[in-house]
Structure formats: C-alpha cells, structure tokens
Amino acid sequence: MNTPIAIDRNEILKRYKPLDKFTHKGIQGHALIIGGSYGKIGSISLSSKAALKTGCGLVTSFVPMCGYEILQITIPEVMVVTDEHEKYLTDISIELEVDAIGIGPGMGQKMATQKAFHDFLSKTSLPLVIDADALNILSHNPSWVALLPPRTILTPHPKELERLIGKWYTEEEKFGKAVVFSLVNQVIIVMKGAPTYIIDGENIYENTTGNAALATAGSGDVLTGMITSLLAQSYKPVDAALLGVYLHGLTADIALPETGYQSFIATSIIEHIGKAYLSLDV
C-alpha cells in the first residue's frame, strides 16, 4: 500500500480557503441534509447544525413529518422540507437549488425508504456525502453504487466499511480492498476510526487530529454535516473530506482540557468548530 499522506495543519493550509470579506449567504453554498425517522431526528439536527457552523450560507433539512417541529424549534436557522409520511422517508423529491447533499443519518432502512433512496440516486448528479443507513442500503443493493455521481464521498465506520467492501483479515488487505473499491467506483472513502483515513483512489491520507473523546453517539452525523457544508462551499470533494475530518478531530483536541474524554458529546464538536477554524487563521 502507498505510504499515507499525513493530514496536518500544513497539508490543510494548502487547501483551506479563508472567507472573502465581501461574501454573502447566497454565495456561501446551500447544503441539503436528508434523513431522520421516528426516534432518530436528533441525527439530522446534529448534521444540519454542523453544516451551518462549518460556514455554509444556507441549510435545508429533508425529514419525515415527525421531524418538522423538532427542527424548526431546535435550529431556527435551518429550513425544513418534509416527506408526506409521518415516520420515515418514502419520496425524496425536492424542488430546491442546492449545491451539495448529505444523506443517510437516522434514515432507517424501511423498504419504502430504500426505494426512495434508489429513485433519488437515479436523478441526482450533485456532490454527495453518503453515511449511516444510506451506506447500509447500498451494501444490501451493491448494483446501486453505479448510480453514484463520480467523486461521491462515503463515510463508513468499520462495520459499514466491511459491509461495503467485504471482510478482511489484515490491515493491508483492508486498505487494498478500499483502494480497489474507490478506483472502480470513482468514490472517496472516509474510513472513520482511530486514526481516520481518507482513500481517494491510490492516494491514502491519515488524519492527525482527534482523540478518544470522539467515540460518542452522533459524532459521525456531525462529520457528515461538516463535509457536506464544505462541498456546498465549492471545495473539491477530496479537499472537503480532508478539511472536514481534520476540523472534526481538532474540535476534540481543543475541547479536551475543559471537557475531559467522558463528557465530550456530539454537540461539543459543533460548539468548538469556530475555535478549530480560528486555529487555521493564526
């Protein structure tokens, strides 16, 4: 396997684009976050708020009807569109101009949701981040991977990765399978873990930020929102993945002295994105 390239501050500064002081929300990107189901609207709340806090100008959430009031109340800055079904997604059709889409958190795997996901993939060519249940649906329907737009970003944790690329018995075999999957399907894989690796064809990147505090519920949902936000802000897919993963880990490094490992939760990541950005501007 190729020697991984370290994702450190120097590598990130080559890719990071500071804001133009004359910018406005209309040119800061519009991200769409799709997912949620009854009892799992929190995941979309985390993704959507993370997308806003990562610098996106506009964020819209697409959720089942049971998520409408929750999102409107908890994140007033986010716009909300709903499916006609009360508890899960059945028809993902949005008449909106958006720049990037994150899909999967909390979505569930009902048959109607799987069909809606297939129909959505069949008609979108926008930059995509695929996570959680959307990844699991892909694993059940491997032929659907061919529907993904080139340079789609997949963000699996180890079990989701195994379902996608098959079982491995050594680290070398895992990376070999991931590289082949990335090359054949023209996708970028964010292999979440300690450390997190990004696979972009034969290029392998190893993140240098983060600690055990990130092993908490909702951490991955936040990362999905962050990467989707960066895609919407016109970062190239690989740069969005690298910067998203780096900032996500950095929040835990910055917060650790005040939170310790145990009381750091997913909302702590969102609360510290600003300080992570400030460290790039020093």
Rank of each mutant, 00 (worst) to 15 (best):
Leu183Val: 14
Leu242Thr: 02
Gly104Thr: 06
Asn203Val: 02
Val282Tyr: 01
Thr228His: 14
Trp144His: 14
Ile165Trp: 02
Thr152Ala: 11
Thr208Leu: 03
Gly29Met: 03
Lys53Asn: 12
Ser219Thr: 01
Ile188Gln: 13
Pro195Asn: 08
Lys49Leu: 11
Leu58Glu: 04
Leu247His: 03
Pro195Met: 10
Ile204Asn: 08
Leu280Thr: 01
Phe117Ser: 08
Gly108Val: 11
Ile92Glu: 13
Glu172Phe: 08
Phe62Ala: 13
Tyr88Cys: 06
Met111Ala: 14
Ile103Thr: 11
Ala100Val: 10
Lys159Val: 01
Leu89Pro: 07
Thr209Asn: 15
Glu171Lys: 10
Lys275Thr: 13
Met65Asp: 00
Tyr16Gly: 04
Ala232Arg: 04
Gly36Glu: 06
Thr155Tyr: 00
Thr155Cys: 02
Tyr277Leu: 00
Met79Ala: 13
Gly36Val: 06
Ser229Gly: 13
Ala146Trp: 14
Ala134Ser: 12
Leu250His: 00
His118Ala: 02
Glu160Tyr: 01
Leu126His: 08
Gly106His: 12
Ile94Ala: 09
Ile27Val: 04
Ser61His: 03
Ser143Leu: 09
Gly249Met: 00
Cys56Ala: 09
Val63Thr: 01
Asp281Lys: 04
Gly260Met: 00
Ser47Ala: 05
Lys17Met: 03
Gly201His: 05
Ala217Arg: 02
Asp119Leu: 08
His24Cys: 13
His30Asn: 03
Leu231Lys: 14
Gly36Ala: 10
Gly39Asn: 13
Val184Gln: 15
Ser37Pro: 13
Ser268Arg: 04
Gly193Ser: 09
Leu148Asn: 10
Phe117Met: 10
Val184Met: 14
Leu247Val: 02
Ser219Gln: 05
Val98Thr: 14
